[in-house]
Simulated scan of single mutants.
Amino acid sequence: MDVTLMVALVIALALVFDFTNGFHDTANAMATPIATGALKPKVAVALAAVLNLVGAFLSTEVAKTISGGLIREGEGGIQIGPELVFAGLIGAIVWNLITWLLGLPSSSSHALFGGLIGAAIVGVGFQAIDGGVLLSKIVIPALLAPVLAGFVAFLATKIAYAIVAKRARDGFKRGQIFTAGLVSLAHGTNDAQKTMGVITLALIAAGQQEVGSGPQLWVVVVCALAIALGTYSGGWRIIRTLGKGITEVEPAQGFAAEASTTATILASSHLGFALSTTQVASGGVIGVGIGRKGASVKWGTAGRIALGWLITIPAAGAVGAFMALVEKLGFWGIVADAAFAAAAILAIFIYSRRESVDSKALDTVEPGDIVRPKRKKRKNKDGSGSKA
């Protein structure tokens, strides 16, 4: 396939991933202010979308980690071609949509890394992956960041409830608007860059950009717009889980969770750590649940989320690897990959319509509940009713 056409396909699919990243991760910033009533759902996602857009322009350090760090450079430049980036993106998108369907706040970032790693290993071999970068800037931050955010949120909650009188705690609702906005800004700064990095990686791999260079301005702009549009679309399933599915959140807790999430993400973005904002936000929510006296953490839900964290990289990697294997068929392999991606996206969307979750559902359905159809009553011979 013509290299220019292949790069165009990669860019298009990367922007689809960026869109899914937006609606998948809206909950990171807005689940707790929606849960406490600090912000109305539609106002919350609109605010998140605008600040995601702004945040995408603030830094490119994470983009450089992906475009010039994770995948090794060989004598001829980056060791993988655009077609393998294409395969990796399919793995990331499919896993993102599956976890969205389940209302599971898994990591869009790790789905992307897993997809790229799986495709690179099949296409080139293990030598294509820079193990040092993988360990220092992805794996270690993935383990430490949610723990750090949870610990900071725990301490912040303890302090808030110790020094602020009960009657004054509703004031934290106003504070949540500010802290939730900061999380959205930080999310744009960290997560939009990952798509910038992928597009830059594809351009370098195709010889259309110099090795070691950062994302071009047009790449920054289109990625910022894609993640903002995705954020505005909602992501209500995951908001429902993160807002109330782990613990009942009061305004002071929400403020503490968002502040700890912001601090962790911004510090990591500055250092070029491509961490998962979802893991950080979830860690913060668990921390505030432990920190408030009388609160309870739903460890079953937390366990499902943690399991999702563990399997995201290998699951997305397996899909990416299979797509890369199919691509060995040549032109028709790439066509088959594109057809699979389109079919998977359509099938998941159609299935999701069986239980449509929108902003109104946040007030009527408990997180984690399975909505079952009502059974019709049938009449007995004596005229009394009973469930069928």
Score class of each variant (00 low, 15 high):
residue 126 F to S: 14
residue 122 V to K: 06
residue 118 G to V: 07
residue 123 G to W: 01
residue 151 F to W: 11
residue 99 T to Q: 02
residue 114 G to H: 01
residue 124 V to W: 09
residue 124 V to H: 12
residue 158 K to A: 03
residue 106 S to A: 15
residue 159 I to E: 05
residue 160 A to D: 04
residue 154 F to R: 01
residue 163 I to V: 15
residue 114 G to F: 00
residue 146 P to D: 13
residue 101 L to S: 11
residue 138 I to Y: 09
residue 124 V to R: 10
residue 110 H to V: 05
residue 162 A to L: 13
residue 152 V to W: 00
residue 146 P to L: 10
residue 152 V to D: 01
residue 152 V to T: 08
residue 113 F to R: 05
residue 117 I to H: 07
residue 125 G to S: 07
residue 135 L to K: 11
residue 169 R to D: 08
residue 105 P to T: 14
residue 131 G to E: 04
residue 102 L to G: 03
residue 94 V to M: 08
residue 168 A to M: 15
residue 136 S to T: 15
residue 140 I to L: 10
residue 99 T to E: 04
residue 124 V to G: 09
residue 111 A to H: 02
residue 95 W to L: 04
residue 116 L to A: 04
residue 113 F to V: 14
residue 105 P to E: 12
residue 106 S to K: 05
residue 122 V to I: 13
residue 170 D to H: 14
residue 142 A to Q: 09
residue 114 G to L: 02
residue 140 I to K: 03
residue 170 D to E: 15
residue 165 A to Y: 12
residue 166 K to E: 14
residue 127 Q to H: 15
residue 88 G to T: 11
residue 169 R to V: 07
residue 141 P to N: 02
residue 108 S to E: 10
residue 105 P to H: 13
residue 116 L to F: 06
residue 112 L to F: 07
residue 97 L to K: 00
residue 93 I to E: 02
residue 155 L to Y: 11
residue 104 L to N: 00
residue 167 R to F: 09
residue 131 G to T: 09
